[in-house]
Simulated assay, not measured.
Amino acid sequence: MLIREFDNQDWSQLWPIIEDVVRAEETFPYDPEMTADAAYTIWVEAPPGRTVVAVDGDRVLGSAKMGTNRPGPGAHVSTASFLVAADARGRGVGTALCRDALAWARRRGYAGMQFNAVVEVNRSAVELYRREGFEVVGTVPGAFRHPTLGRVGLHVMYQEF
């Protein structure tokens, strides 16, 4: 597996991954009716942000986007989001993407990385982030409407560098 910068030619493989994750309504607080154009605008970061893909040969297995969490006085903290294709989960793709994003943020001189909305019942993501050094610093109760579990919390997770 290789992690590399996103190229527009990757979009034809990346959009179906995004669409599947968003339409499932289990892990991302994005509109499940979002279009490919809207997803592209949200997912593909303009510099100084960054979007990468994890590939195995020519196949896109997942993606990460990263950048500044908030402008102005909050610009010293980074953020990132991750997506992995359903049939590629459990193979270390998410871990590799997370480590890549953390290394990028450290190279850029950020003071830490904050995840703003980690669905508390997304156990694999929460466990991964904890393994990589993140802590839950707060949870907004009932902030995410899960399709089978009802309203569940959204964690704010943080790692100081």
Score class of each variant (00 low, 15 high):
residue 4 R to P: 00
residue 6 F to A: 03
residue 6 F to H: 11
residue 10 D to F: 09
residue 11 W to D: 07
residue 12 S to I: 15
residue 13 Q to A: 12
residue 13 Q to P: 07
residue 14 L to K: 01
residue 14 L to M: 10
residue 16 P to N: 04
residue 16 P to M: 05
residue 17 I to A: 02
residue 17 I to T: 11
residue 18 I to F: 14
residue 20 D to F: 00
residue 21 V to A: 13
residue 22 V to Y: 01
residue 22 V to H: 01
residue 23 R to M: 02
residue 29 P to N: 15
residue 30 Y to K: 05
residue 33 E to Q: 14
residue 34 M to R: 10
residue 35 T to D: 07
residue 36 A to H: 09
residue 40 Y to V: 00
residue 44 V to I: 15
residue 46 A to P: 09
residue 46 A to I: 03
residue 47 P to I: 01
residue 48 P to T: 03
residue 49 G to E: 10
residue 51 T to Q: 04
residue 51 T to W: 07
residue 53 V to H: 06
residue 57 G to Q: 12
residue 58 D to L: 08
residue 58 D to W: 01
residue 59 R to E: 14
residue 60 V to D: 09
residue 60 V to N: 07
residue 61 L to T: 15
residue 62 G to V: 05
residue 63 S to T: 12
residue 64 A to M: 12
residue 65 K to L: 14
residue 67 G to Q: 13
residue 67 G to C: 10
residue 72 G to M: 14
residue 72 G to F: 13
residue 76 H to Q: 13
residue 78 S to I: 01
residue 79 T to V: 02
residue 83 L to V: 14
residue 87 D to L: 14
residue 88 A to S: 13
residue 90 G to M: 05
residue 90 G to N: 11
residue 91 R to E: 13
residue 92 G to V: 08
residue 94 G to L: 08
residue 94 G to N: 08
residue 96 A to I: 01
residue 96 A to M: 06
residue 97 L to P: 04
residue 99 R to D: 01
residue 102 L to M: 14
residue 103 A to T: 10
residue 106 R to L: 07
residue 106 R to K: 15
residue 106 R to Q: 13
residue 109 G to W: 08
residue 111 A to H: 15
residue 112 G to T: 03
residue 118 V to R: 01
residue 118 V to A: 03
residue 120 E to V: 15
residue 124 S to A: 15
residue 124 S to L: 11
residue 124 S to T: 15
residue 126 V to R: 08
residue 128 L to F: 05
residue 131 R to Y: 05
residue 131 R to E: 11
residue 131 R to I: 02
residue 132 E to C: 10
residue 133 G to W: 04
residue 134 F to V: 02
residue 135 E to Y: 02
residue 137 V to G: 11
residue 138 G to V: 09
residue 139 T to W: 03
residue 141 P to L: 12
residue 143 A to K: 08
residue 145 R to T: 12
residue 149 L to E: 15
residue 149 L to I: 05
residue 150 G to S: 06
residue 150 G to V: 00
residue 153 G to Q: 05
residue 154 L to Q: 12
residue 155 H to G: 07
residue 157 M to F: 07
